[in-house]
């Protein structure tokens, strides 16, 4: 059995790294001779940096569930936009780094300088190498990232808010998404085609208010197939993780709105998310 143990360790303050383990969850994957351990600790806190929450966990769960496919893809370059605490990019690197794929380059951006610094600490604490840049989406990188990104992940500011709250300084820019929560998401959708490689995969977190079905339609017109890989209801929101990939024939794809999580995987998601929910209430 291939065990992947995810531990979240809560640090007491930004300087204490050794701290209390509040969660240990064992996830079981398809049989494999090796045992792998991914430990992602939250090593830094900053009042203006988004702490990993249900949405972050849903995204990492989607990546974990796709581990085999991601390995098979043999990505050269993985990019996270809006890396916040660094929880997701660090997890992705650990998910991929434990296989033979040592050639992978990781890259992360965030519009918040504080977030980028927190990401650096999280990466360093887990001995993960990644390039990190303060950028608006991928500003300054677009020229050299032209159709070379193999895995792209984005947990955007998706909460519907008045438009003037979008992109302001401070923690609000971590969640404020403007009309239907789509302002930042839509800007991202418009550049996916210029970023993704021919085999590239894009993972996006969205909530019901963002109209995930319509997001999939928009992407279908741009030549991307889609699938909802995680769907999860919390007290506050209904989370979706959408997955997109290129298709030659825009019609040759599965229905975008059908959740296609296998029964085994979805029960796995449920157990994992329940434990994480407990973690969140613990805090």
């Amino acid at each position: 059995m291939d065990n992947l143990i995810v531990c979240l360790i809560e640090a007491k303050d930004t300087t204490t790294v050794h701290s209390k383990i509040v969660l240990t969850s064992a996830l079981f994957f398809a049989p494999s001779p090796r045992t792998r351990i991914a430990e992602v600790r939250l090593v830094g806190r900053h009042p203006e940096v988004y702490e990993p929450c249900d949405d972050s966990f849903a995204l990492v769960d989607a990546l974990l569930a796709d581990k085999a496919q991601l390995e098979e893809l043999k990505p050269s370059l993985c990019l996270e936009v809006g890396c916040g605490s660094g929880y997701v990019i660090t997890s992705l690197a650990l998910i991929l780094g434990n296989c033979s794929n040592s050639e992978v380059q990781f890259l992360a951006t965030d519009v918040s300088e504080a977030a980028v610094h927190t990401t650096c600490s999280t990466l360093a604490a887990h001995h993960v190498n990644a390039e990190v840049v303060v950028a608006d989406l991928v500003s300054g990188l677009e020229k050299r990232l032209d159709k070379v990104v193999d895995v792209l992940v984005f947990n955007p500011p998706y909460v519907p808010t008045p438009e003037h709250e979008v992109g302001v300084e401070g923690i609000a820019s971590a969640w404020a998404g403007g009309d239907r929560g789509r302002m930042v998401i839509d800007r991202m959708l418009s550049i996916i085609d210029s970023l993704l490689s021919s085999k590239g995969i894009f993972y996006l977190v969205a909530v019901t208010e963002n109209n995930p079905g319509e997001i999939c339609q928009v992407m279908r017109c741009k030549g991307f197939a889609s699938r909802i890989v995680v769907q999860r209801h919390t007290d506050e929101e209904s989370l979706h993780v959408l997955k997109f990939w290129r298709v030659d024939d825009p019609l040759d794809q599965e229905g975008p709105t059908t959740p296609s999580v296998s029964p085994r995987t979805s029960s796995l998601h449920r157990t994992f998310s329940q434990r994480l929910a407990r973690l969140v209430s613990f805090k």
Partner: peptide, 13 residues
């Protein structure tokens, strides 16, 4: 000029 501070480049416009 794009500043690099504490090892991080800032590409915001």
């Amino acid at each position: 000029r794009f500043p690099v501070s504490k090892g991080i480049p800032n590409m915001l416009l």
